[in-house]
């Protein structure tokens, strides 16, 4: 019954031939992302904008009007109300700017009386969220540096460079998709991007490991097509593993996206996007990039003794 076997190694698939199209596609995606980010920007959540947010839930389905009325009782007018949950029994109200401590107490008391559970009030100055984002950015940058060094020692510098380029692409794509859909950026989103980064490294290294192994078997790289053939074979040999791994991780991520708590929906969605981007970049981008760079280096080394001989 279950006879699927992604046995691609025997099929004649060429993942290298159209590399220029992949490069153009990748660059186009990055440009589109850059345009999106500079025009629409990001929908920064309360973690990055100063304000107050009140989350609460009720036994009964809620309406926006009802919530506005309840806030009016304590003399407040929310700037934004979003309903959530299967039957709209959850809601969150956002206030730009801070609420006084007394107002927070009023809200908590009143909403507990009305809905029977204490609402969740978060106040934040954007400074903390921004610091966390900047800190995550710096830490990721340093992590990338560490990876390049390790890969340069274990493999070769060019592998590290190509892996980091793919990693940055994956993270950037996730951020761009969030800009396009104007989904809220919050602190868990940063963790999601970090997960994508971790997965991307893992995926690229597995592919590169096979390329390295197969390149070692060749005595000498005679032409670009020769090296391209080796890279293509390596990609096909690891293709089953790449697909099976992404499918299994997607099972977990999609389940949490669709079934998990409201609070981590967008977080799981970011991981789903990142997994797909990571698979694309390992299959169609990272290895091809390494191939082009590596062949340039080989050519340069080949030409060097010749030019020196000419001079002397």
């Amino acid at each position: 019954m279950f006879a699927v076997d992604f046995n691609m190694a025997k099929k004649n698939i060429d993942l290298i031939k159209h590399r220029k199209k992949y490069f153009v596609f990748t660059i186009a995606v990055v440009l589109a992302g850059a345009i999106l980010l500079s025009t629409m920007g990001l929908n920064l959540g309360i973690d990055f904008e100063s304000g107050t947010r009140v989350d609460f839930m009720s036994e009964e389905p809620l309406t926006e009007e009802e919530i506005e009325n309840e806030f009016a009782v304590v003399g407040l007018e929310p700037d934004d109300i979003t309903l959530a949950g299967e039957n709209n029994e959850q809601a969150s109200a956002q206030f730009i700017g801070f609420l006084e401590e007394g107002e927070v107490t009023d809200i908590q008391g009143h909403f507990e009386d009305v809905f029977g559970s204490e609402p969740n009030v978060s106040t934040v100055s954007p400074q903390i969220g921004r610091e966390l984002a900047i800190n995550a950015l710096i830490a990721t940058g340093l992590a990338a540096l560490g990876i390049v060094i390790y890969v340069a020692i274990r493999f070769e510098f060019l592998y590290g460079l190509a892996a980091i380029t793919a990693l940055l692409y994956d993270a950037f794509l996730v951020i761009s998709v969030f800009s396009l859909l104007q989904l809220e950026i919050n602190i868990p989103f940063i963790a999601a991007v970090l997960t994508v980064v971790g997965y991307s490294i893992n995926d690229t290294i597995v592919t590169f490991d096979r390329i390295r192994e197969n390149v070692k078997k060749e005595e000498e790289i005679t032409s670009f097509d020769h090296l391209a053939g080796v890279v293509n074979n390596s990609l096909l040999q690891t293709l089953t593993r790449s697909l099976n791994t992404v499918i299994t991780v997607l099972f977990a991520a999609v389940a949490i996206w669709l079934l998990g708590s409201e609070a981590i929906t967008s977080f799981a969605f970011a991981i789903v996007i990142g997994m797909i981007a990571g698979t694309y970049s390992s299959l169609f981008f990272a290895a091809q990039l390494w191939l082009v760079w590596k062949y340039k280096v080989i050519e340069k080394e080949r030409n060097k003794p010749v030019s020196e001989a000419e001079e002397s």
Binding site: L132, A136, A144, I147, L194, G198, I201
Partner: peptide, 17 residues
């Protein structure tokens, strides 16, 4: 490679990270 990344995140990161 992933542990290196995680160790750097742990060392330089704050709270959630």
């Amino acid at each position: 490679t992933t542990i290196i990344a995680a160790a750097v995140l742990f060392y330089f990161g704050t709270s959630a990270v």
